[in-house]
Design a protein around this nucleic acid. Structure first.
Length: 527
RNA sequence: CAGGGUGUAGCUCAGCUUGGUAGAGCGGCGGCUUUGGGAGCCGCAAGUCGCAGGUUCGAAUCCUGUCGCCCUGACCA
């Protein structure tokens, strides 16, 4: 940095040391919002609570869709599409289900607009029956299933839908909670309870695999407690990730619905003995919330860090073109480089390369890509061309740690480098999570763990503290409610065994009331 | 829905107490200078001051009403 620059910095005091301000430690919630904006992924819209997903963010969603969709197909599911509108009477059929969603339903009551006589328009043509904009599609898909299923030969029925849903939330945050969001919802019907439970767990495993292998987001799988269960479900399973502020993010859910919905909607079939049987159903979903999880798992104080498998572009080539006499040659070199890289494959597909020819200053351009989280930035100028090399910056390292690599070496090693970055991000996230899981057997220790220390942050700052606490728990709903009231902490899940979590195998006593307990549960503050 | 705050240029805001007819920074555009870096200088464009009434010779500023948005709660992928 020049002396002049330093002086200016001192004078103005406004030159940021990091691309994102505030930093994660200063104010995590605000940092998150700033990253979404700086990474050019989404923005708020004119419609309250609804977001505009911008191309760089939507491309991540497309990659998520592609990865998941392949996994759904591989497990025998087919895609279909059902209506956005659900007749109100459908929703009323399953009592618990309505109760769970009623407060956040958007309702369509009219189907026409007329001049209001004052230059504006007013709704006219009131509907006989109001239509609810789907908050989830159990009722409309179930009604369809009831028609499709007649015989045991029609089962299992394995359907997935990619769609948008609306939940009229009061308080929204981009990607994490918006009034409208994109998701997929799987809906299946089975002849036996055993099959339906197996399906529920299979899809949970699909989600775990996807989160781990694609998003580089380590997750804990488990079962929800009664209080956190999906309205109308017998059992809800989930994947829970730990964000960098140590809060939990529910990243996906898979529900065993038993026969609750099939009985409410007459989803029944004739079995091999010609007896009438109610089907056993499941539903499971993940949403654009995954993108929020991606940001909070990997982002740093300079912005987003994209895991290569879901990154819209793997490599951004930034030509250094300011000398007229070398301009053409550098461009040619860059185009050749891009073509050679695209001929390579990573993750079974061509490497995604972008050549950024925008007429912007080098520094600004480079920083934009840092904030967006492109895995690799490759600067190519006359010097590199002379040496048959490239100057590479990795997003998983500091922005100054750039290195010169021989052109061919770089091209030949690109797939390995991306794979190494993907693995590195997962390991980093896993280490962070594991460091912040604590086994607790004492109530006071538990309360202290979730109470911010004196230096946790200033006024208005969201403190980073706590983490995942694993305690024995008797399962009492009122007790869980009390702890939620005291600390804002809930049971995230009763973890599935065999995923390497500490202290799961021995029975014990609930530290809150001394009752017997067979397993430990995961407690955390959550999004 | 309850409590608090706030609406002025694309964005962030100043001006309002003490009415006189609109400002800054950032961003955009252009020029010059720079060039492996989020640079500098000069210039240009851009606002019926949320909306509707009222007071006044005159309202961004005072009064009334209204709408939107933000924060805090209950709810939540």
């Amino acid at each position: 940095m020049s002396e002049q620059k330093k002086k200016q910095q001192q004078k103005s005091g406004q030159k940021p040391k990091t691309a994102i301000q505030p930093t994660r430690v200063e104010n995590y919630a605000e940092w998150y919002q700033q990253v979404v904006k700086a990474a050019d992924m989404a923005e708020t819209s004119a419609v309250r609570g609804c977001m505009v997903i911008k191309p760089w963010g939507y491309a991540v969603w497309e990659n998520i869709q592609r990865g998941l969709d392949d996994m759904f197909k591989a497990t025998g599911h087919q895609n279909a599409y059902f209506p956005l509108f659900i007749p109100l009477s459908y929703l009323e059929k399953e009592a618990q289900h309505v109760e769970g969603f009623a407060k956040e339903c958007a309702v369509v009551t009219h189907h026409r607009l007329e001049p209001d006589g004052e230059g504006g328009l007013k709704p006219a043509g009131e509907l006989d029956e109001p239509l609810v904009v789907r908050p989830t599609s159990e009722m409309i898909i179930g009604a369809t299933f009831a028609k499709w299923i007649e015989s045991w030969r029609d089962l299992p029925l394995l359907i997935n839908q990619w769609a948008n849903v609306v939940r009229w939330e009061m308080r929204t945050r981009l990607f994490l909670r918006t009034a409208e969001f994109l998701w997929q919802e799987g809906h299946t019907a089975h002849a036996t309870e055993k099959e339906a439970v197996e399906e529920t767990l299979q899809m949970l495993e699909v989600y775990r695999t996807f989160a781990t292998d694609w998003l580089a987001m380590p997750v804990i799988t488990g079962e929800k407690t009664e209080g956190e269960r999906f309205p109308g479900a017998e059992n809800t399973y989930c994947i829970e990730g730990m964000m960098q502020d140590r809060k939990a993010l529910q990243a996906g859910t898979s529900h065993f619905l038993g026969q609750n919905f099939s009985k409410a909607q007459e989803i029944c079939f004739a079995d091999a003995n010609t007896d009438k049987q109610y089907a056993w159903t499941t539903s499971w979903g993940v949403s654009t919330r995954l993108i929020g999880g991606l940001i909070m798992t990997h982002g740093d104080d300079d912005g987003m860090i994209m895991p290569p498998r879901v990154a819209p572009s793997h490599i951004v080539i930034l030509p250094v073109l300011h000398k007229e006499e070398t301009r053409e040659a550098v461009l040619e070199y860059c185009n050749k480089l891009a073509a050679d890289l695209r001929a390579k494959s990573y993750d079974g597909r061509p490497v995604r390369v972008e050549l950024d020819l925008r007429d912007l200053r080098g520094g600004e351009k480079s920083w934009q890509w840092i904030k967006r989280g492109a895995p690799l930035r490759v600067e190519v100028g006359p010097r590199d061309m002379e040496n048959d090399a490239v100057f590479v910056g990795r997003r998983d390292r500091g922005h100054k740690e750039k290195e010169t690599i021989g052109r061919e070496t770089f091209i030949d090693g690109i797939s390995d480098m991306l794979a190494e970055m993907q693995e590195g991000l997962l390991e980093r996230a896993r280490a962070h999570r594991d460091e912040n899981i604590r086994i607790i057997d004492d109530k006071d220790e538990f309360y202290a763990f979730f109470t911010p220390g004196e230096n946790a942050g200033g006024k208005g700052v969201v403190p980073i503290h706590g983490g995942f606490a694993m305690t024995h728990f008797c399962g009492d709903v009122a007790l869980e409610e009390q702890i939620k009231k005291d600390l804002g902490v809930t049971v995230r899940c009763i973890p599935t065994r065999g995923q390497g979590l500490p202290g799961q195998d021995e029975p014990g006593t609930c530290p809150f009331n001394g009752q017997e307990s067979t397993t430990r549960v995961v407690w955390a503050k959550s999004y």
